[in-house]
Design a protein around this nucleic acid. Structure first.
Lengths: 218, 218
DNA sequence: GACGTAAGCTTACGACGTACACAAACCGGG
DNA sequence: CCCGGTTTGTGTACGTCGTAAGCTTACGTC
Protein backbone atom coordinates (compact mmCIF):
# COMPACT_ATOMS: atom_id res chain seq x y z
CA UNK A 1 0.00 0.00 0.00
CA UNK A 2 3.00 2.23 0.50
CA UNK A 3 5.74 3.44 -1.78
CA UNK A 4 7.49 0.38 -3.23
CA UNK A 5 4.93 -2.19 -4.33
CA UNK A 6 7.59 -4.86 -3.70
CA UNK A 7 10.53 -3.88 -5.89
CA UNK A 8 13.32 -5.54 -3.86
CA UNK A 9 15.46 -4.05 -6.61
CA UNK A 10 18.85 -4.15 -4.94
CA UNK A 11 19.80 -4.66 -1.37
CA UNK A 12 17.81 -3.60 1.59
CA UNK A 13 16.78 -5.42 4.70
CA UNK A 14 14.37 -8.27 3.98
CA UNK A 15 10.81 -7.40 4.94
CA UNK A 16 9.16 -9.21 7.80
CA UNK A 17 5.92 -7.37 7.15
CA UNK A 18 3.65 -6.92 4.19
CA UNK A 19 0.57 -4.77 3.84
CA UNK A 20 -1.54 -7.91 3.73
CA UNK A 21 -0.04 -9.24 6.93
CA UNK A 22 -0.66 -5.93 8.65
CA UNK A 23 -4.29 -5.88 7.51
CA UNK A 24 -4.77 -9.49 8.57
CA UNK A 25 -3.37 -8.76 12.02
CA UNK A 26 -5.67 -5.76 12.27
CA UNK A 27 -8.65 -7.99 11.53
CA UNK A 28 -7.53 -10.41 14.22
CA UNK A 29 -7.20 -7.65 16.80
CA UNK A 30 -10.54 -6.24 15.75
CA UNK A 31 -12.32 -9.58 16.07
CA UNK A 32 -10.68 -10.39 19.38
CA UNK A 33 -10.74 -7.08 21.19
CA UNK A 34 -12.99 -4.65 19.36
CA UNK A 35 -12.60 -1.44 17.45
CA UNK A 36 -11.26 0.59 20.36
CA UNK A 37 -8.41 -1.87 20.76
CA UNK A 38 -7.48 -1.62 17.10
CA UNK A 39 -4.44 0.58 17.73
CA UNK A 40 -1.17 0.71 15.92
CA UNK A 41 0.66 -0.50 19.00
CA UNK A 42 -1.57 -3.51 19.48
CA UNK A 43 -1.45 -4.53 15.84
CA UNK A 44 2.30 -4.19 15.97
CA UNK A 45 2.45 -6.29 19.13
CA UNK A 46 0.48 -9.07 17.45
CA UNK A 47 3.07 -9.10 14.70
CA UNK A 48 5.98 -8.92 17.12
CA UNK A 49 6.92 -5.51 15.82
CA UNK A 50 6.97 -1.93 17.03
CA UNK A 51 4.05 0.32 16.22
CA UNK A 52 6.07 2.61 14.02
CA UNK A 53 7.13 -0.26 11.80
CA UNK A 54 3.61 -0.50 10.45
CA UNK A 55 4.04 2.89 8.86
CA UNK A 56 6.38 1.37 6.30
CA UNK A 57 3.41 -0.49 4.86
CA UNK A 58 0.42 1.70 5.69
CA UNK A 59 0.40 5.50 5.56
CA UNK A 60 -1.70 5.98 8.69
CA UNK A 61 -4.33 4.38 10.85
CA UNK A 62 -7.25 5.43 8.68
CA UNK A 63 -5.71 3.76 5.66
CA UNK A 64 -5.31 0.63 7.71
CA UNK A 65 -8.99 0.76 8.60
CA UNK A 66 -9.85 1.22 4.95
CA UNK A 67 -7.74 -1.81 4.16
CA UNK A 68 -9.66 -3.81 6.73
CA UNK A 69 -12.95 -2.67 5.22
CA UNK A 70 -12.00 -3.66 1.70
CA UNK A 71 -10.56 -6.96 2.91
CA UNK A 72 -13.75 -7.91 4.70
CA UNK A 73 -16.06 -6.77 1.94
CA UNK A 74 -14.09 -8.73 -0.64
CA UNK A 75 -14.26 -11.76 1.58
CA UNK A 76 -18.01 -11.30 1.91
CA UNK A 77 -18.71 -11.10 -1.79
CA UNK A 78 -16.13 -13.59 -3.00
CA UNK A 79 -17.24 -16.21 -0.48
CA UNK A 80 -18.01 -19.52 -2.14
CA UNK A 81 -21.72 -20.08 -2.13
CA UNK A 82 -22.48 -22.79 0.44
CA UNK A 83 -25.72 -23.61 -1.36
CA UNK A 84 -25.78 -25.86 -4.42
CA UNK A 85 -22.87 -27.98 -3.14
CA UNK A 86 -20.97 -28.95 -6.26
CA UNK A 87 -24.13 -28.93 -8.32
CA UNK A 88 -23.90 -30.89 -11.57
CA UNK A 89 -25.60 -28.19 -13.65
CA UNK A 90 -22.61 -26.06 -14.65
CA UNK A 91 -23.72 -25.01 -18.09
CA UNK A 92 -21.82 -21.74 -17.95
CA UNK A 93 -18.10 -21.40 -17.68
CA UNK A 94 -16.58 -20.39 -14.36
CA UNK A 95 -18.88 -17.65 -13.14
CA UNK A 96 -22.19 -17.16 -14.78
CA UNK A 97 -25.20 -14.97 -15.18
CA UNK A 98 -27.59 -17.76 -14.53
CA UNK A 99 -30.87 -17.57 -12.72
CA UNK A 100 -33.12 -14.59 -12.17
CA UNK A 101 -31.63 -11.49 -10.65
CA UNK A 102 -33.87 -11.52 -7.62
CA UNK A 103 -32.38 -14.78 -6.49
CA UNK A 104 -28.84 -13.57 -7.04
CA UNK A 105 -29.61 -10.39 -5.17
CA UNK A 106 -30.95 -12.37 -2.24
CA UNK A 107 -27.87 -14.57 -2.24
CA UNK A 108 -25.66 -11.50 -2.20
CA UNK A 109 -27.57 -10.16 0.80
CA UNK A 110 -27.31 -13.43 2.67
CA UNK A 111 -23.60 -13.81 1.97
CA UNK A 112 -22.89 -10.23 2.94
CA UNK A 113 -24.78 -10.65 6.17
CA UNK A 114 -23.04 -13.90 6.96
CA UNK A 115 -19.65 -12.24 6.73
CA UNK A 116 -20.79 -9.29 8.80
CA UNK A 117 -22.01 -11.56 11.56
CA UNK A 118 -18.76 -13.49 11.41
CA UNK A 119 -16.99 -10.26 12.33
CA UNK A 120 -19.47 -8.46 14.58
CA UNK A 121 -17.01 -5.93 15.89
CA UNK A 122 -16.14 -4.94 12.34
CA UNK A 123 -19.68 -3.93 11.49
CA UNK A 124 -19.40 -0.37 12.86
CA UNK A 125 -16.24 -0.03 10.84
CA UNK A 126 -17.92 -1.18 7.63
CA UNK A 127 -20.73 1.24 8.36
CA UNK A 128 -18.42 4.17 8.90
CA UNK A 129 -15.87 3.66 6.15
CA UNK A 130 -17.40 3.36 2.70
CA UNK A 131 -16.14 0.51 0.60
CA UNK A 132 -13.90 1.70 -2.18
CA UNK A 133 -16.26 2.28 -5.08
CA UNK A 134 -14.12 0.65 -7.78
CA UNK A 135 -13.52 -2.38 -5.61
CA UNK A 136 -17.23 -2.65 -4.95
CA UNK A 137 -18.23 -2.37 -8.58
CA UNK A 138 -15.63 -4.94 -9.63
CA UNK A 139 -16.76 -7.42 -7.03
CA UNK A 140 -20.40 -6.95 -7.90
CA UNK A 141 -19.97 -7.08 -11.66
CA UNK A 142 -21.42 -10.57 -11.85
CA UNK A 143 -24.50 -9.50 -10.00
CA UNK A 144 -24.95 -6.51 -12.27
CA UNK A 145 -24.77 -8.84 -15.24
CA UNK A 146 -27.79 -10.74 -13.97
CA UNK A 147 -29.83 -7.57 -14.11
CA UNK A 148 -28.52 -6.66 -17.53
CA UNK A 149 -29.42 -10.10 -18.83
CA UNK A 150 -32.99 -9.46 -17.77
CA UNK A 151 -33.07 -6.12 -19.53
CA UNK A 152 -33.02 -4.02 -16.39
CA UNK A 153 -31.30 -0.68 -16.99
CA UNK A 154 -28.03 -0.23 -15.13
CA UNK A 155 -29.31 2.58 -12.98
CA UNK A 156 -32.20 0.54 -11.69
CA UNK A 157 -29.91 -2.37 -11.00
CA UNK A 158 -27.52 -0.18 -9.04
CA UNK A 159 -30.37 1.25 -7.04
CA UNK A 160 -31.64 -2.20 -6.13
CA UNK A 161 -28.22 -3.55 -5.24
CA UNK A 162 -27.24 -0.54 -3.20
CA UNK A 163 -30.56 -0.49 -1.41
CA UNK A 164 -30.18 -4.10 -0.42
CA UNK A 165 -26.59 -3.56 0.63
CA UNK A 166 -27.59 -0.63 2.75
CA UNK A 167 -30.38 -2.63 4.32
CA UNK A 168 -28.08 -5.52 5.16
CA UNK A 169 -25.52 -3.25 6.73
CA UNK A 170 -28.11 -1.32 8.68
CA UNK A 171 -29.70 -4.51 9.89
CA UNK A 172 -26.37 -5.93 11.01
CA UNK A 173 -25.69 -2.67 12.84
CA UNK A 174 -28.93 -3.07 14.71
CA UNK A 175 -28.16 -6.68 15.55
CA UNK A 176 -24.64 -6.21 16.84
CA UNK A 177 -25.18 -2.69 18.08
CA UNK A 178 -23.74 -2.04 21.50
CA UNK A 179 -22.09 0.96 23.09
CA UNK A 180 -18.71 0.67 21.43
CA UNK A 181 -16.82 -0.19 24.57
CA UNK A 182 -17.37 -3.76 25.75
CA UNK A 183 -13.85 -5.13 25.49
CA UNK A 184 -14.92 -8.60 26.62
CA UNK A 185 -14.20 -11.53 24.34
CA UNK A 186 -17.63 -11.80 22.76
CA UNK A 187 -21.18 -11.59 24.07
CA UNK A 188 -22.61 -15.07 23.81
CA UNK A 189 -25.24 -15.40 21.10
CA UNK A 190 -28.71 -15.66 22.56
CA UNK A 191 -30.57 -18.14 20.34
CA UNK A 192 -33.92 -16.43 20.83
CA UNK A 193 -32.43 -13.08 19.82
CA UNK A 194 -30.74 -14.73 16.87
CA UNK A 195 -34.02 -16.20 15.68
CA UNK A 196 -35.70 -12.82 16.07
CA UNK A 197 -33.07 -11.08 13.97
CA UNK A 198 -33.07 -13.84 11.37
CA UNK A 199 -36.82 -13.56 10.99
CA UNK A 200 -36.71 -9.81 10.80
CA UNK A 201 -33.90 -9.94 8.25
CA UNK A 202 -35.80 -12.35 6.01
CA UNK A 203 -39.00 -10.34 6.16
CA UNK A 204 -37.34 -7.04 5.35
CA UNK A 205 -35.24 -8.54 2.61
CA UNK A 206 -38.22 -10.27 1.04
CA UNK A 207 -40.23 -7.06 1.16
CA UNK A 208 -37.48 -5.08 -0.51
CA UNK A 209 -36.60 -7.63 -3.17
CA UNK A 210 -40.20 -8.31 -4.09
CA UNK A 211 -40.85 -4.59 -4.17
CA UNK A 212 -38.01 -4.13 -6.61
CA UNK A 213 -39.20 -7.06 -8.65
CA UNK A 214 -42.48 -5.28 -9.28
CA UNK A 215 -40.82 -1.92 -9.70
CA UNK A 216 -38.34 -3.14 -12.30
CA UNK A 217 -40.64 -5.50 -14.17
CA UNK A 218 -41.13 -4.61 -17.80
CA UNK B 1 -28.27 12.44 33.89
CA UNK B 2 -26.05 12.30 36.94
CA UNK B 3 -26.67 11.80 40.60
CA UNK B 4 -28.98 14.62 41.72
CA UNK B 5 -31.78 15.07 39.19
CA UNK B 6 -31.94 18.73 40.20
CA UNK B 7 -32.78 18.69 43.91
CA UNK B 8 -31.24 22.05 44.86
CA UNK B 9 -32.34 21.01 48.34
CA UNK B 10 -30.20 23.31 50.42
CA UNK B 11 -27.20 25.35 49.53
CA UNK B 12 -24.67 24.44 46.97
CA UNK B 13 -23.05 26.45 44.27
CA UNK B 14 -25.56 27.43 41.55
CA UNK B 15 -25.16 25.34 38.44
CA UNK B 16 -24.15 27.07 35.25
CA UNK B 17 -24.37 23.76 33.37
CA UNK B 18 -27.16 21.30 32.82
CA UNK B 19 -27.12 17.95 31.09
CA UNK B 20 -29.21 19.44 28.30
CA UNK B 21 -26.79 22.30 27.79
CA UNK B 22 -23.90 19.89 27.64
CA UNK B 23 -25.67 17.72 25.08
CA UNK B 24 -26.63 20.76 23.02
CA UNK B 25 -23.05 21.98 22.99
CA UNK B 26 -21.91 18.54 21.95
CA UNK B 27 -24.31 18.63 19.01
CA UNK B 28 -22.94 22.03 18.01
CA UNK B 29 -19.37 20.81 18.11
CA UNK B 30 -20.34 17.70 16.20
CA UNK B 31 -22.09 19.64 13.46
CA UNK B 32 -19.32 22.18 13.17
CA UNK B 33 -16.20 20.08 13.46
CA UNK B 34 -17.10 16.42 13.15
CA UNK B 35 -17.04 13.40 15.36
CA UNK B 36 -13.29 13.36 15.93
CA UNK B 37 -13.48 16.86 17.35
CA UNK B 38 -16.22 15.91 19.76
CA UNK B 39 -13.93 15.80 22.77
CA UNK B 40 -14.64 16.68 26.36
CA UNK B 41 -12.19 19.55 26.20
CA UNK B 42 -13.79 21.09 23.13
CA UNK B 43 -17.31 20.77 24.44
CA UNK B 44 -16.17 22.36 27.65
CA UNK B 45 -14.49 25.16 25.76
CA UNK B 46 -17.71 25.90 23.87
CA UNK B 47 -19.45 26.28 27.23
CA UNK B 48 -16.64 28.34 28.73
CA UNK B 49 -15.88 25.61 31.19
CA UNK B 50 -13.11 23.13 31.91
CA UNK B 51 -13.38 19.61 30.53
CA UNK B 52 -13.68 18.04 33.94
CA UNK B 53 -16.72 20.13 34.77
CA UNK B 54 -18.76 18.15 32.28
CA UNK B 55 -18.36 15.08 34.45
CA UNK B 56 -20.74 16.59 37.00
CA UNK B 57 -23.53 16.19 34.46
CA UNK B 58 -22.45 13.25 32.33
CA UNK B 59 -20.72 10.14 33.63
CA UNK B 60 -18.33 9.77 30.70
CA UNK B 61 -17.87 10.49 27.05
CA UNK B 62 -19.86 7.52 25.87
CA UNK B 63 -22.87 8.61 27.87
CA UNK B 64 -22.57 12.03 26.29
CA UNK B 65 -22.60 10.44 22.87
CA UNK B 66 -25.65 8.42 23.86
CA UNK B 67 -27.32 11.64 24.94
CA UNK B 68 -26.56 13.18 21.57
CA UNK B 69 -28.04 10.15 19.82
CA UNK B 70 -31.28 10.25 21.78
CA UNK B 71 -31.53 14.01 21.36
CA UNK B 72 -31.21 13.82 17.60
CA UNK B 73 -33.53 10.86 17.23
CA UNK B 74 -36.20 12.55 19.31
CA UNK B 75 -35.83 15.64 17.19
CA UNK B 76 -36.20 13.54 14.06
CA UNK B 77 -39.38 11.82 15.11
CA UNK B 78 -41.03 14.68 16.94
CA UNK B 79 -40.42 17.08 14.08
CA UNK B 80 -43.62 18.84 12.95
CA UNK B 81 -44.71 17.53 9.61
CA UNK B 82 -43.94 20.17 6.97
CA UNK B 83 -46.47 18.64 4.60
CA UNK B 84 -50.14 19.52 4.83
CA UNK B 85 -49.38 23.12 5.86
CA UNK B 86 -52.19 23.92 8.28
CA UNK B 87 -54.56 21.75 6.29
CA UNK B 88 -58.25 22.35 7.00
CA UNK B 89 -59.01 18.64 7.35
CA UNK B 90 -58.22 18.12 11.01
CA UNK B 91 -60.92 15.65 11.90
CA UNK B 92 -58.84 14.04 14.65
CA UNK B 93 -57.62 15.79 17.76
CA UNK B 94 -53.99 16.69 18.14
CA UNK B 95 -52.20 13.55 17.05
CA UNK B 96 -54.09 10.83 15.39
CA UNK B 97 -54.11 7.41 13.90
CA UNK B 98 -55.42 8.63 10.61
CA UNK B 99 -54.52 7.40 7.20
CA UNK B 100 -53.14 4.04 6.19
CA UNK B 101 -50.00 2.83 7.87
CA UNK B 102 -47.98 2.77 4.67
CA UNK B 103 -48.28 6.51 4.37
CA UNK B 104 -47.35 7.09 7.98
CA UNK B 105 -44.39 4.77 7.62
CA UNK B 106 -43.20 6.68 4.59
CA UNK B 107 -43.56 9.96 6.44
CA UNK B 108 -41.51 8.59 9.31
CA UNK B 109 -38.79 7.57 6.89
CA UNK B 110 -38.74 10.97 5.22
CA UNK B 111 -38.66 12.85 8.50
CA UNK B 112 -35.93 10.63 9.89
CA UNK B 113 -33.85 11.12 6.79
CA UNK B 114 -34.35 14.86 6.83
CA UNK B 115 -32.97 15.11 10.34
CA UNK B 116 -30.05 12.85 9.48
CA UNK B 117 -29.11 15.01 6.53
CA UNK B 118 -29.42 18.10 8.68
CA UNK B 119 -26.65 16.66 10.86
CA UNK B 120 -24.47 14.75 8.42
CA UNK B 121 -21.56 14.34 10.79
CA UNK B 122 -23.86 12.79 13.36
CA UNK B 123 -24.91 9.96 11.07
CA UNK B 124 -21.96 7.69 11.91
CA UNK B 125 -22.77 8.28 15.56
CA UNK B 126 -26.42 7.31 15.12
CA UNK B 127 -25.27 4.24 13.24
CA UNK B 128 -22.86 3.20 15.94
CA UNK B 129 -24.83 3.94 19.08
CA UNK B 130 -28.24 2.29 19.16
CA UNK B 131 -31.12 4.50 20.16
CA UNK B 132 -32.37 3.70 23.62
CA UNK B 133 -35.08 1.11 23.05
CA UNK B 134 -37.66 2.58 25.44
CA UNK B 135 -37.14 6.04 24.01
CA UNK B 136 -37.60 4.67 20.53
CA UNK B 137 -40.75 2.74 21.32
CA UNK B 138 -42.28 5.73 23.09
CA UNK B 139 -41.57 8.05 20.20
CA UNK B 140 -42.91 5.60 17.67
CA UNK B 141 -46.03 4.66 19.59
CA UNK B 142 -48.23 6.70 17.28
CA UNK B 143 -46.84 4.95 14.26
CA UNK B 144 -47.40 1.56 15.85
CA UNK B 145 -51.00 2.53 16.48
CA UNK B 146 -51.56 3.01 12.76
CA UNK B 147 -50.59 -0.59 12.17
CA UNK B 148 -52.72 -1.82 15.04
CA UNK B 149 -55.71 0.08 13.69
CA UNK B 150 -55.32 -1.83 10.43
CA UNK B 151 -55.20 -5.14 12.24
CA UNK B 152 -51.51 -5.77 11.64
CA UNK B 153 -49.99 -7.80 14.48
CA UNK B 154 -47.47 -5.99 16.59
CA UNK B 155 -44.57 -8.17 15.53
CA UNK B 156 -45.14 -7.50 11.87
CA UNK B 157 -45.45 -3.79 12.53
CA UNK B 158 -42.19 -3.73 14.44
CA UNK B 159 -40.45 -5.61 11.68
CA UNK B 160 -41.66 -3.16 9.07
CA UNK B 161 -40.79 -0.09 11.11
CA UNK B 162 -37.37 -1.36 12.07
CA UNK B 163 -36.60 -2.43 8.55
CA UNK B 164 -37.44 0.99 7.23
CA UNK B 165 -35.47 2.66 10.00
CA UNK B 166 -32.48 0.53 9.22
CA UNK B 167 -32.79 1.30 5.53
CA UNK B 168 -32.96 5.04 6.15
CA UNK B 169 -29.94 4.99 8.41
CA UNK B 170 -27.95 2.83 6.04
CA UNK B 171 -28.85 5.03 3.12
CA UNK B 172 -27.84 8.16 4.98
CA UNK B 173 -24.56 6.49 5.88
CA UNK B 174 -23.91 5.84 2.22
CA UNK B 175 -24.79 9.41 1.30
CA UNK B 176 -22.65 11.17 3.88
CA UNK B 177 -20.02 8.47 4.08
CA UNK B 178 -16.48 9.78 4.06
CA UNK B 179 -13.31 8.70 5.79
CA UNK B 180 -14.09 10.05 9.23
CA UNK B 181 -11.42 12.70 9.19
CA UNK B 182 -12.29 15.71 7.02
CA UNK B 183 -12.38 18.44 9.65
CA UNK B 184 -13.34 21.08 7.10
CA UNK B 185 -16.50 23.09 7.69
CA UNK B 186 -18.77 21.07 5.41
CA UNK B 187 -18.40 19.60 1.93
CA UNK B 188 -20.64 21.62 -0.34
CA UNK B 189 -23.69 19.72 -1.52
CA UNK B 190 -23.41 18.72 -5.14
CA UNK B 191 -26.91 19.08 -6.61
CA UNK B 192 -26.43 16.22 -9.04
CA UNK B 193 -25.31 13.92 -6.27
CA UNK B 194 -28.21 15.09 -4.13
CA UNK B 195 -30.67 14.27 -6.87
CA UNK B 196 -29.09 10.84 -7.32
CA UNK B 197 -29.41 10.03 -3.64
CA UNK B 198 -32.95 11.38 -3.47
CA UNK B 199 -34.00 9.22 -6.35
CA UNK B 200 -32.28 6.18 -4.92
CA UNK B 201 -33.86 6.80 -1.54
CA UNK B 202 -37.36 7.05 -2.98
CA UNK B 203 -36.98 3.93 -5.07
CA UNK B 204 -35.68 1.81 -2.23
CA UNK B 205 -38.22 3.12 0.21
CA UNK B 206 -41.08 2.53 -2.20
CA UNK B 207 -39.87 -0.99 -2.87
CA UNK B 208 -39.68 -1.80 0.80
CA UNK B 209 -42.96 -0.21 1.81
CA UNK B 210 -44.91 -1.73 -1.04
CA UNK B 211 -43.29 -5.07 -0.32
CA UNK B 212 -44.46 -4.86 3.27
CA UNK B 213 -47.89 -3.79 2.15
CA UNK B 214 -48.30 -7.02 0.24
CA UNK B 215 -46.63 -9.07 2.95
CA UNK B 216 -48.84 -7.73 5.72
CA UNK B 217 -52.09 -7.58 3.79
CA UNK B 218 -54.85 -9.75 5.19
C1' DG C 1 35.54 -5.12 4.11
C1' DA C 2 32.89 -0.83 2.44
C1' DC C 3 28.76 1.10 0.36
C1' DG C 4 23.97 1.95 -0.70
C1' DT C 5 19.33 0.88 0.45
C1' DA C 6 15.24 -0.55 2.58
C1' DA C 7 13.03 -2.22 7.09
C1' DG C 8 12.34 -1.93 11.63
C1' DC C 9 13.32 0.69 16.30
C1' DT C 10 13.74 4.53 19.76
C1' DT C 11 12.48 8.61 21.33
C1' DA C 12 9.50 12.44 21.70
C1' DC C 13 5.37 15.54 21.29
C1' DG C 14 0.77 16.98 21.66
C1' DA C 15 -4.03 15.51 22.50
C1' DC C 16 -7.13 12.47 24.46
C1' DG C 17 -10.31 10.47 28.61
C1' DT C 18 -10.63 10.75 33.24
C1' DA C 19 -9.28 9.89 38.68
C1' DC C 20 -8.54 12.79 42.57
C1' DA C 21 -8.13 16.46 45.62
C1' DC C 22 -9.26 21.19 46.03
C1' DA C 23 -11.38 25.98 45.58
C1' DA C 24 -15.56 28.64 45.01
C1' DA C 25 -20.33 29.86 45.62
C1' DC C 26 -24.44 29.36 47.51
C1' DC C 27 -27.73 27.95 51.79
C1' DG C 28 -29.61 28.15 56.71
C1' DG C 29 -28.63 29.07 61.54
C1' DG C 30 -25.87 31.34 65.17
C1' DC D 1 -21.44 38.86 60.37
C1' DC D 2 -19.42 34.51 60.27
C1' DC D 3 -19.86 29.28 60.02
C1' DG D 4 -20.40 24.47 58.79
C1' DG D 5 -22.69 22.05 54.94
C1' DT D 6 -23.48 21.16 50.26
C1' DT D 7 -22.89 21.33 45.51
C1' DT D 8 -20.36 22.92 41.33
C1' DG D 9 -16.51 23.94 38.74
C1' DT D 10 -11.00 23.64 38.48
C1' DG D 11 -6.00 22.13 38.41
C1' DT D 12 -3.03 18.64 38.17
C1' DA D 13 -1.58 14.25 36.81
C1' DC D 14 -1.43 9.57 34.63
C1' DG D 15 -1.65 6.36 31.04
C1' DT D 16 -2.65 5.80 26.10
C1' DC D 17 -3.16 7.25 21.58
C1' DG D 18 -1.29 8.62 16.51
C1' DT D 19 2.67 9.74 14.44
C1' DA D 20 7.16 12.89 13.03
C1' DA D 21 12.31 12.44 12.92
C1' DG D 22 16.40 10.25 13.10
C1' DC D 23 18.91 5.95 14.15
C1' DT D 24 20.24 1.06 13.72
C1' DT D 25 20.12 -3.26 11.43
C1' DA D 26 20.42 -6.49 7.69
C1' DC D 27 20.63 -7.31 3.26
C1' DG D 28 22.84 -7.33 -2.10
C1' DT D 29 26.67 -5.67 -4.52
C1' DC D 30 31.29 -4.47 -5.26
Amino acid sequence: MNQPARPRGRGGRPAVLTTERVVAAAVEVLDAEGLDALTMRRVGARLGVAAMSLYRHVPNRDALLAGVVNHLFSQAVAEPDPESPEGPESSEGTEGAEGPWAEALTRFAVAYRRTLLLHPRAVPLLATHPVDVDTGLTLLAGLLDRFAAAGVPREGALTAIQSVGVYVLGHALAQVGTPPGAAGPAPVADPAATAFYDHWFDAGLLAMVSGFERQLAG
